[in-house]
Design a protein around this nucleic acid. Structure first.
Length: 306
DNA sequence: TCTATTTGACCGAC
DNA sequence: GTCGGTCAAATAGA
Protein backbone atom coordinates (compact mmCIF):
# COMPACT_ATOMS: atom_id res chain seq x y z
CA UNK A 1 0.00 0.00 0.00
CA UNK A 2 2.66 2.47 1.03
CA UNK A 3 4.95 1.25 -1.66
CA UNK A 4 2.25 2.00 -4.15
CA UNK A 5 1.87 5.43 -2.67
CA UNK A 6 5.57 5.96 -3.09
CA UNK A 7 5.31 4.94 -6.70
CA UNK A 8 2.42 7.29 -7.23
CA UNK A 9 4.48 10.08 -5.72
CA UNK A 10 7.30 9.33 -8.08
CA UNK A 11 5.05 9.20 -11.09
CA UNK A 12 3.62 12.51 -10.09
CA UNK A 13 7.10 13.91 -9.60
CA UNK A 14 8.09 12.73 -13.01
CA UNK A 15 5.11 14.43 -14.53
CA UNK A 16 6.11 17.66 -12.88
CA UNK A 17 9.66 17.20 -14.14
CA UNK A 18 8.38 16.70 -17.66
CA UNK A 19 6.34 19.84 -17.39
CA UNK A 20 9.38 21.68 -16.15
CA UNK A 21 11.43 20.37 -19.01
CA UNK A 22 8.87 21.57 -21.49
CA UNK A 23 8.78 24.90 -19.79
CA UNK A 24 12.54 25.25 -19.95
CA UNK A 25 12.58 24.32 -23.58
CA UNK A 26 9.92 26.83 -24.26
CA UNK A 27 10.27 29.49 -21.57
CA UNK A 28 8.06 31.93 -23.36
CA UNK A 29 5.23 29.52 -23.59
CA UNK A 30 3.93 29.76 -20.08
CA UNK A 31 4.09 32.43 -17.48
CA UNK A 32 7.80 31.94 -17.07
CA UNK A 33 9.60 31.69 -13.79
CA UNK A 34 6.60 31.57 -11.54
CA UNK A 35 5.37 28.33 -13.03
CA UNK A 36 8.86 26.91 -13.15
CA UNK A 37 9.35 27.66 -9.50
CA UNK A 38 6.10 26.02 -8.74
CA UNK A 39 7.15 22.92 -10.58
CA UNK A 40 10.49 22.77 -8.84
CA UNK A 41 8.74 22.92 -5.51
CA UNK A 42 6.42 20.13 -6.48
CA UNK A 43 9.23 17.96 -7.75
CA UNK A 44 11.27 18.43 -4.63
CA UNK A 45 8.31 17.69 -2.48
CA UNK A 46 7.66 14.56 -4.43
CA UNK A 47 11.18 13.34 -3.75
CA UNK A 48 10.92 14.22 -0.11
CA UNK A 49 7.68 12.41 0.36
CA UNK A 50 8.82 9.34 -1.47
CA UNK A 51 11.98 9.08 0.57
CA UNK A 52 9.96 9.47 3.69
CA UNK A 53 7.57 6.76 2.68
CA UNK A 54 10.24 4.33 1.63
CA UNK A 55 12.22 4.82 4.76
CA UNK A 56 9.19 4.13 6.85
CA UNK A 57 8.47 1.02 4.87
CA UNK A 58 12.03 -0.17 5.11
CA UNK A 59 12.30 0.41 8.83
CA UNK A 60 9.10 -1.45 9.47
CA UNK A 61 7.56 1.66 10.85
CA UNK A 62 4.99 2.17 8.24
CA UNK A 63 3.21 5.15 9.51
CA UNK A 64 -0.47 5.32 9.03
CA UNK A 65 -0.23 8.93 9.89
CA UNK A 66 2.14 9.45 7.09
CA UNK A 67 0.02 7.53 4.69
CA UNK A 68 -3.05 9.24 5.87
CA UNK A 69 -1.80 12.72 5.96
CA UNK A 70 -1.14 14.02 2.69
CA UNK A 71 2.31 13.91 1.42
CA UNK A 72 2.18 17.43 0.30
CA UNK A 73 2.50 18.31 3.91
CA UNK A 74 5.85 16.92 4.91
CA UNK A 75 5.72 18.01 8.45
CA UNK A 76 2.44 16.40 9.22
CA UNK A 77 3.89 13.07 10.17
CA UNK A 78 5.90 14.86 12.75
CA UNK A 79 2.83 15.67 14.61
CA UNK A 80 2.95 14.43 18.09
CA UNK A 81 -0.53 13.11 18.30
CA UNK A 82 0.29 9.91 16.65
CA UNK A 83 -1.97 7.34 18.17
CA UNK A 84 -3.46 5.10 15.53
CA UNK A 85 -5.34 7.75 13.70
CA UNK A 86 -7.13 8.91 16.74
CA UNK A 87 -7.29 12.63 16.76
CA UNK A 88 -6.51 14.56 19.82
CA UNK A 89 -9.21 14.27 22.37
CA UNK A 90 -11.20 17.26 23.30
CA UNK A 91 -10.27 18.30 26.78
CA UNK A 92 -12.97 17.38 29.26
CA UNK A 93 -12.35 20.61 31.03
CA UNK A 94 -10.77 23.84 30.09
CA UNK A 95 -7.45 23.68 31.82
CA UNK A 96 -6.46 20.22 30.78
CA UNK A 97 -2.85 20.61 29.79
CA UNK A 98 -0.25 18.38 28.34
CA UNK A 99 -2.66 16.38 26.23
CA UNK A 100 -0.12 14.93 23.87
CA UNK A 101 1.96 11.91 23.19
CA UNK A 102 5.68 11.97 23.05
CA UNK A 103 6.94 11.31 19.59
CA UNK A 104 8.60 8.01 18.89
CA UNK A 105 9.80 8.66 15.43
CA UNK A 106 10.07 11.97 13.81
CA UNK A 107 12.21 13.90 11.49
CA UNK A 108 14.66 15.76 13.62
CA UNK A 109 18.05 17.23 13.13
CA UNK A 110 20.36 19.02 15.43
CA UNK A 111 22.69 21.91 15.07
CA UNK A 112 25.38 22.83 17.50
CA UNK A 113 26.86 26.27 17.50
CA UNK A 114 28.73 28.51 19.86
CA UNK A 115 25.95 31.06 19.70
CA UNK A 116 22.19 30.70 19.50
CA UNK A 117 21.20 30.06 15.92
CA UNK A 118 19.22 32.61 14.01
CA UNK A 119 17.74 30.49 11.26
CA UNK A 120 15.60 33.26 9.89
CA UNK A 121 12.33 31.73 10.96
CA UNK A 122 10.03 33.32 13.46
CA UNK A 123 9.89 31.25 16.61
CA UNK A 124 7.81 31.59 19.68
CA UNK A 125 8.96 30.21 22.97
CA UNK A 126 6.34 28.06 24.64
CA UNK A 127 8.22 26.32 27.36
CA UNK A 128 11.35 25.83 29.35
CA UNK A 129 12.34 22.75 31.25
CA UNK A 130 15.06 21.70 33.60
CA UNK A 131 16.59 18.56 32.19
CA UNK A 132 17.99 15.81 34.31
CA UNK A 133 21.79 15.89 34.55
CA UNK A 134 21.92 19.04 32.53
CA UNK A 135 23.25 22.25 33.91
CA UNK A 136 21.14 24.45 31.71
CA UNK A 137 17.41 24.27 30.99
CA UNK A 138 15.99 23.28 27.63
CA UNK A 139 13.94 25.87 25.80
CA UNK A 140 11.04 24.94 23.58
CA UNK A 141 10.04 26.94 20.56
CA UNK A 142 7.33 26.56 17.97
CA UNK A 143 6.74 28.39 14.74
CA UNK A 144 5.09 31.75 15.26
CA UNK A 145 2.74 30.94 12.39
CA UNK A 146 1.51 27.72 13.88
CA UNK A 147 -1.95 28.98 14.63
CA UNK A 148 -2.70 30.94 11.49
CA UNK A 149 -0.90 28.65 9.05
CA UNK A 150 -0.86 25.39 10.93
CA UNK A 151 2.91 25.21 10.71
CA UNK A 152 4.07 22.41 12.98
CA UNK A 153 7.77 23.16 13.04
CA UNK A 154 9.30 23.20 16.49
CA UNK A 155 12.77 23.42 17.89
CA UNK A 156 14.48 22.87 21.19
CA UNK A 157 17.48 24.85 22.26
CA UNK A 158 19.74 23.77 25.07
CA UNK A 159 23.02 25.08 26.25
CA UNK A 160 25.36 22.16 26.83
CA UNK A 161 27.53 21.51 29.84
CA UNK A 162 30.61 21.40 27.73
CA UNK A 163 33.48 23.78 28.12
CA UNK A 164 33.01 26.11 26.45
CA UNK A 165 29.27 25.64 26.41
CA UNK A 166 27.61 25.47 23.03
CA UNK A 167 24.00 25.74 21.96
CA UNK A 168 22.39 22.57 20.75
CA UNK A 169 19.35 23.29 18.61
CA UNK A 170 17.12 20.39 17.69
CA UNK A 171 14.64 21.02 14.92
CA UNK A 172 11.52 18.93 14.58
CA UNK A 173 9.22 19.07 11.64
CA UNK A 174 9.35 21.32 8.66
CA UNK A 175 7.97 24.76 8.15
CA UNK A 176 4.85 24.82 6.07
CA UNK A 177 4.25 28.44 6.79
CA UNK A 178 4.93 31.25 4.40
CA UNK A 179 6.89 33.71 6.39
CA UNK A 180 7.30 36.82 4.26
CA UNK A 181 10.85 37.29 5.46
CA UNK A 182 11.78 33.77 4.53
CA UNK A 183 9.88 33.81 1.29
CA UNK A 184 12.11 36.33 -0.39
CA UNK A 185 15.10 34.25 0.50
CA UNK A 186 13.45 31.08 -0.76
CA UNK A 187 12.69 32.59 -4.09
CA UNK A 188 16.28 33.57 -4.55
CA UNK A 189 17.43 30.05 -3.94
CA UNK A 190 14.80 28.54 -6.15
CA UNK A 191 15.89 30.85 -8.89
CA UNK A 192 19.46 29.72 -8.60
CA UNK A 193 18.36 26.11 -8.60
CA UNK A 194 16.48 26.70 -11.79
CA UNK A 195 19.62 27.91 -13.41
CA UNK A 196 21.37 24.77 -12.34
CA UNK A 197 18.62 22.66 -13.73
CA UNK A 198 18.89 24.37 -17.02
CA UNK A 199 22.58 23.79 -17.27
CA UNK A 200 22.21 20.13 -16.53
CA UNK A 201 19.52 19.08 -18.86
CA UNK A 202 21.27 15.88 -19.90
CA UNK A 203 20.62 13.63 -16.96
CA UNK A 204 22.44 10.48 -16.17
CA UNK A 205 22.27 8.13 -13.29
CA UNK A 206 25.66 9.16 -12.05
CA UNK A 207 25.09 12.80 -12.38
CA UNK A 208 21.48 13.55 -11.98
CA UNK A 209 20.65 17.20 -12.47
CA UNK A 210 18.50 17.22 -9.40
CA UNK A 211 21.49 16.67 -7.22
CA UNK A 212 24.23 18.02 -9.34
CA UNK A 213 22.47 21.30 -9.25
CA UNK A 214 23.24 21.45 -5.58
CA UNK A 215 26.73 20.09 -5.61
CA UNK A 216 27.79 22.35 -8.38
CA UNK A 217 28.03 25.35 -6.17
CA UNK A 218 29.89 23.86 -3.28
CA UNK A 219 32.76 25.73 -1.83
CA UNK A 220 34.95 23.76 0.48
CA UNK A 221 35.88 26.25 3.09
CA UNK A 222 34.79 24.81 6.37
CA UNK A 223 33.85 21.51 7.70
CA UNK A 224 30.71 20.54 9.47
CA UNK A 225 29.43 17.43 10.99
CA UNK A 226 26.02 16.52 9.79
CA UNK A 227 23.95 13.74 11.05
CA UNK A 228 20.33 13.04 10.90
CA UNK A 229 17.87 11.11 12.82
CA UNK A 230 15.42 8.97 10.97
CA UNK A 231 16.03 9.58 7.37
CA UNK A 232 17.25 11.87 4.75
CA UNK A 233 13.97 13.55 4.46
CA UNK A 234 14.94 16.82 5.95
CA UNK A 235 17.92 17.19 3.73
CA UNK A 236 15.85 16.76 0.69
CA UNK A 237 12.84 18.41 2.12
CA UNK A 238 11.72 21.58 0.65
CA UNK A 239 11.86 23.47 3.83
CA UNK A 240 15.34 22.45 4.72
CA UNK A 241 16.64 23.06 1.29
CA UNK A 242 15.16 26.45 1.18
CA UNK A 243 15.80 27.51 4.71
CA UNK A 244 18.25 30.28 5.15
CA UNK A 245 21.49 29.20 6.72
CA UNK A 246 22.53 30.26 10.15
CA UNK A 247 24.85 33.21 10.20
CA UNK A 248 27.50 31.39 12.08
CA UNK A 249 29.40 28.25 11.49
CA UNK A 250 27.36 25.55 13.01
CA UNK A 251 27.48 21.88 13.43
CA UNK A 252 24.72 19.57 12.50
CA UNK A 253 24.35 16.33 14.20
CA UNK A 254 21.75 13.78 14.75
CA UNK A 255 19.99 12.25 17.62
CA UNK A 256 19.02 8.98 16.11
CA UNK A 257 20.54 6.15 14.15
CA UNK A 258 23.14 8.14 12.49
CA UNK A 259 24.29 8.61 9.07
CA UNK A 260 27.12 10.95 9.14
CA UNK A 261 27.68 13.32 6.37
CA UNK A 262 30.71 15.38 6.36
CA UNK A 263 32.32 18.27 4.72
CA UNK A 264 30.74 21.52 4.41
CA UNK A 265 31.06 24.90 3.20
CA UNK A 266 29.95 27.77 5.19
CA UNK A 267 30.73 30.13 2.42
CA UNK A 268 27.92 28.88 0.33
CA UNK A 269 24.60 30.48 0.74
CA UNK A 270 22.96 27.16 1.42
CA UNK A 271 26.05 25.32 2.42
CA UNK A 272 24.52 23.04 5.00
CA UNK A 273 22.16 21.54 2.56
CA UNK A 274 24.53 21.30 -0.27
CA UNK A 275 27.13 19.62 1.79
CA UNK A 276 24.64 17.11 3.01
CA UNK A 277 23.50 16.17 -0.41
CA UNK A 278 26.95 16.35 -1.83
CA UNK A 279 28.33 14.11 0.84
CA UNK A 280 25.72 11.57 0.03
CA UNK A 281 27.36 10.88 -3.23
CA UNK A 282 30.64 10.09 -1.59
CA UNK A 283 29.43 8.08 1.30
CA UNK A 284 29.52 4.39 0.72
CA UNK A 285 27.95 3.75 4.02
CA UNK A 286 24.33 4.37 3.64
CA UNK A 287 23.91 7.33 1.46
CA UNK A 288 24.60 6.94 -2.14
CA UNK A 289 22.61 9.18 -4.31
CA UNK A 290 24.58 8.15 -7.34
CA UNK A 291 23.10 4.72 -6.98
CA UNK A 292 20.15 6.35 -5.38
CA UNK A 293 20.34 4.65 -2.09
CA UNK A 294 19.33 6.67 0.87
CA UNK A 295 19.66 5.38 4.36
CA UNK A 296 18.44 1.85 4.40
CA UNK A 297 16.38 2.30 1.30
CA UNK A 298 17.80 1.29 -1.99
CA UNK A 299 16.11 3.37 -4.58
CA UNK A 300 17.66 1.28 -7.27
CA UNK A 301 14.98 -1.25 -6.58
CA UNK A 302 12.13 1.06 -7.12
CA UNK A 303 13.40 3.92 -9.19
CA UNK A 304 14.26 3.93 -12.77
CA UNK A 305 15.38 7.03 -14.51
CA UNK A 306 15.44 7.23 -18.22
C1' DT B 1 -4.12 46.96 23.92
C1' DC B 2 -1.61 43.58 21.80
C1' DT B 3 2.03 40.31 21.55
C1' DA B 4 5.64 37.57 23.50
C1' DT B 5 7.67 35.27 27.46
C1' DT B 6 7.58 32.92 31.88
C1' DT B 7 6.40 29.25 34.63
C1' DG B 8 3.73 25.79 37.09
C1' DA B 9 0.55 22.21 35.90
C1' DC B 10 -0.73 18.44 33.24
C1' DC B 11 -0.14 13.99 31.26
C1' DG B 12 1.84 10.38 28.04
C1' DA B 13 5.96 7.62 27.49
C1' DC B 14 9.15 4.94 29.56
C1' DG C 1 7.24 6.99 39.74
C1' DT C 2 10.09 9.87 36.88
C1' DC C 3 11.05 12.48 32.92
C1' DG C 4 10.16 15.44 29.34
C1' DG C 5 7.00 17.94 26.02
C1' DT C 6 3.14 20.98 25.88
C1' DC C 7 -0.50 23.97 27.55
C1' DA C 8 -2.25 28.17 29.14
C1' DA C 9 -2.75 31.69 32.89
C1' DA C 10 -0.04 35.25 34.55
C1' DT C 11 3.17 38.59 33.61
C1' DA C 12 6.22 41.70 31.04
C1' DG C 13 7.24 44.69 27.39
C1' DA C 14 6.34 47.49 23.24
Amino acid sequence: MDRQKAMEELVQGREFATQLQNLLHNPLGGDGLVSAKDLVLKIMRSFTDTISLLNFIESGEVSHNLAGTHLSSPCCHDRIYEDSGESRKIPPFKDRRGGFKRRKTSVTWTKVSPTPIDDGHAWRKYGQKEILNAKYPRNYYRCTHRDEQDCQATKQVQKTDEDPPVYRTTYMGHHTCKDPLIRAHHELIVDSNLLSFESNMAPSKQDHPFFSSFSSSIKQEHREEIVMSDDLTHYLSLDYLLSPPPPDLATLESSGPTTMLSSTPAGSDHGDVISGVYSCTTSSDSLDLGGFMVGSVDFGDVLHFD
